[in-house]
Simulated assay, not measured.
Amino acid sequence: MAVRFLAREVSDLCLGKPALRSLPVSATVADALSALKRSGESHVSVWTCEHSLAANGGGDCLCVGKICMVDVICFLCREKNLLNPSSALQSPLSDLLTKSPGIVKHLEPHSSLLEAIDYILEGAQNLIVPIESSRSITSRKKLLNKPSSFGSTLHNGREFCWLTQEDVVRFLLSSIGVFSPIPAYTIESLNAIDTDVMTIYYDDPASSALDSISLSLTEQKSIGVVDECNKLIGEISPYTIACCDETVSAAIMTLSAGDLMAYIDYGGPPEDLVQLVKARLEEKNLGAILDFLEEHSFSSLSSFSSSSSDEEFGLSRSGGSGRYGPERSSEPILCHPWSSLMAVMIQALAHRVTHVWVVEEDYSIVGIVTFAGILKAFRSIAGGVRQNPEGDNSFKH
């Protein structure tokens, strides 16, 4: 029964999914920043379209990546961009795209759920699936060789949605009984715990974790903030940073890991930390980033989001650009090695996080469970696991 369930088409997961809006690969970092602020979405898709070939029956539109606020923030933290952040925002969007291949993958609607899981286990974070709508059918006839407008949902007359790892895990949970007794097994017995974790000491400079922040985004993990006994006391999560705005780049370059957690936690940065960031920028002679911080203050960002037109992207305003909300927290979601797979799935989905930390009773770190680790356990049920890029059958537990 479980194998038959995994043979279901991915189109079943696309029901009710909105058409995916996009940016062309020729856009700038500033364009991506504007799209992220106006959409209220955590990511914006980036596309390349060969419209000049479409009229001759060739060419295609492909999603080549995705951008989130973490990408923008890490980009602004680069040394040369700290010296001239305003100029950095005019850089081409291609400068932000991850060099890791396969982050996004195109998939046909008739593809199986099993194929989708395989792509995720090979590194895909988002699956791009074509969807049919009355608009896309009509537009396919009229707009086949007309370039998509900025923020359009149409690509050569077709519309697409994307499926995330969370979507797939949520779909499996909706029919969890099909996979019995696997969901009741412990995550330890299923080898679902990833022991390759990233940590930083509470008092260490947050800037020392900059490379880890980028890596955690790629691996859908988080950076554990630990005390001198290596016990977990918090985290610096790409999900949390993605809910912030570009001014956090200044905080990353000036604060300790512990202070950064407080800076990006609930309700926006405390005033004393804002002043500390400004003082340290002056000490480091980073006047350009200080001016940038003043220009893009949280109050002006809020007024920008409320006064700007969303017609360019056809998107509703959702929290504006200063997205400091009660859902954002540096408090890690925890489980134990003896927690069941289903319990961990529910935790991750309930808190809308991509990972759950695994700790002992004294909060010493055992590892981390990601959506990919969860899906690996379900994938093993189908058997015949195809080899991963490294050539071993590590998808099988």
Score class of each variant (00 low, 15 high):
5 F>G: 02
11 S>I: 12
12 D>E: 15
13 L>Y: 05
13 L>K: 03
17 K>T: 05
19 A>P: 00
21 R>T: 04
22 S>T: 14
22 S>A: 01
28 T>D: 04
36 L>K: 00
43 H>A: 04
44 V>W: 03
55 A>W: 13
58 G>T: 02
61 C>R: 06
62 L>Q: 14
75 F>S: 00
80 K>D: 15
84 N>V: 09
85 P>V: 10
86 S>G: 14
97 L>V: 08
115 E>A: 13
116 A>L: 05
120 I>L: 11
126 N>M: 00
134 S>R: 11
135 R>M: 10
138 T>L: 15
142 K>G: 00
149 S>D: 14
153 T>G: 01
155 H>F: 11
165 Q>R: 14
167 D>C: 01
172 L>C: 03
177 G>L: 00
178 V>P: 10
180 S>G: 08
188 E>V: 05
199 T>R: 08
201 Y>Q: 13
201 Y>L: 02
202 Y>S: 12
208 S>I: 03
209 A>N: 10
214 S>V: 08
216 S>E: 12
216 S>P: 02
224 G>F: 08
227 D>V: 12
229 C>D: 09
230 N>Q: 14
230 N>K: 09
231 K>W: 06
234 G>I: 09
237 S>V: 04
243 C>E: 04
252 I>S: 02
253 M>L: 10
269 P>C: 06
278 K>A: 13
285 N>Y: 10
287 G>D: 15
290 L>E: 03
307 S>F: 12
308 S>W: 07
309 S>N: 13
319 G>P: 01
333 I>K: 03
334 L>K: 11
336 H>S: 14
361 E>A: 10
365 I>G: 09
374 I>W: 04
379 R>N: 08
381 I>N: 11
383 G>K: 05
393 N>Y: 14
